[in-house]
Design a protein around this nucleic acid. Structure first.
Lengths: 218, 218
DNA sequence: ACCTGAACACCGTTCAAGT
DNA sequence: ACCTGAACACCGTTCAAGT
């Protein structure tokens, strides 16, 4: 198995927990979560499996630590915007971009039921923008969570969908030949444009804010 | 290990592929996907593991077949509504209800990158309603997929979120004590109401349709 | 046609033992 | 303080062998 980084040249120093996490993240990024195993990680580090247990403490703890790392990175998301609504949209887009970038880690967070924690890093920034729009209290909580669920859940689903795109080919025979809307059938034949779908949903979610609407429980 | 159903009393008849799938579905429903293994399934059926391989052909094929089953059930979703928009909303809600009901199978479909296929069973019914609103072609495709992504991705995310609710407790110390909006902080302390978030998003997605808006690429 | 046991190559984890 | 090998209990899958 190829090495991603050289093992320390001379004295073969003790491994640190940080090195283990870093290597694990790289390994997962390159080969995917499915190919990851404690033994492969140990191989990559040039160390016995059991030594990982001493430093980190098992697969669960390791993955928890990786998710924690992801949370940390999400604290520094860039954003801009001339008004609060644009600012929220911008935040949502850069959060989505980061999650897509770290898709393997997101998948891990998802399968470990940690997705709600992904709300936290930008919750306060969203709240600030909402308060400038005069949206507060439980209304603000609802909108905030709607935006977060939109961003995160569509990111979570997108990978699965994109990886499985090969299965996504529409079978035209399912549509009666007489179906009048040829343009629709054709549009459904090409793979889903998840960026466009995300933008459509985001705009819809934020439209009430632009209109200064205040009743969020239609 | 307890049996979910008795093994055939007398002649110990050959197992059928259907029995295998049925038992697998029950097992997964009760104990979750993580606890599922080919060997446990074989035990449950009172049969050697290898006989499952003869009938079905391995874990992959087995899961594929289970997902196929789910797709079949989604063809008969109930729906009503006095107008096309309400009809679409009703369809979306019953699709979501079914997915939540079969959450373990949805998780399997997700991790096997089969989520796009979940679009198919109700695609045509959505298209019919949209055409009644005068929405056709690529506009219809976009709206249709936005609705589907909303339903499925929020269902996919909800399980992970609900199962992980124990980690979802907001740490109030993260909010500066001076944060003025006490009501918001309090609202964020209680667990996310995913039904409300889903409804908020669904209404937002369908609002343009109610208003007879025709520009879907804001 | 249907089922079986043995075997292979993998897992994650524990633990006593080394230095 | 840090690393190790041996061992345990599990996996999914293949295959030759039975009836």
């Amino acid at each position: 198995m190829r090495r991603l980084t050289q093992p320390g040249g001379k004295g073969s120093d003790p491994v640190t927990a940080d090195q283990i996490l870093q290597t694990a993240a790289e390994l997962i990024d390159v080969d995917g979560v499915d190919a990851f195993s404690m033994r492969r990680l140990a191989d990559q580090l040039g160390v016995a499996v059991t030594s990982i247990y001493w430093h980190i403490g098992g697969r669960d703890k390791l993955f928890d630590a990786l998710v924690e790392r992801l949370l940390g990175q999400m604290a520094d998301l860039p954003s801009d915007g001339d008004n609060p609504v644009d600012h929220i949209a911008s935040l949502a887009r850069s959060q989505r971009k980061m999650l897509i970038d770290k898709q393997h880690l997101l998948a891990i967070a998802h399968e470990r039921d940690r997705t709600p924690q992904l709300f936290l890093p930008i919750q306060q920034r969203l709240a600030t923008q909402l308060s400038e729009l005069g949206i507060t209290g439980s209304d603000a909580a609802l909108v905030l969570r709607a935006v977060q669920v939109h961003v995160i859940s569509s990111a979570v689903m997108q990978f699965s969908a994109v990886r499985g795109a090969k299965h996504d080919e529409e079978d035209p025979s399912l549509w009666a030949d007489a179906w009048p809307d040829r343009a629709l059938v054709e549009a459904l034949q090409s793979p889903t444009d998840y960026d466009a779908v995300f933008e459509y949903g985001l705009n819809a979610l934020l439209a009430p804010l632009r209109d200064g609407m205040t009743d969020f429980r239609g």
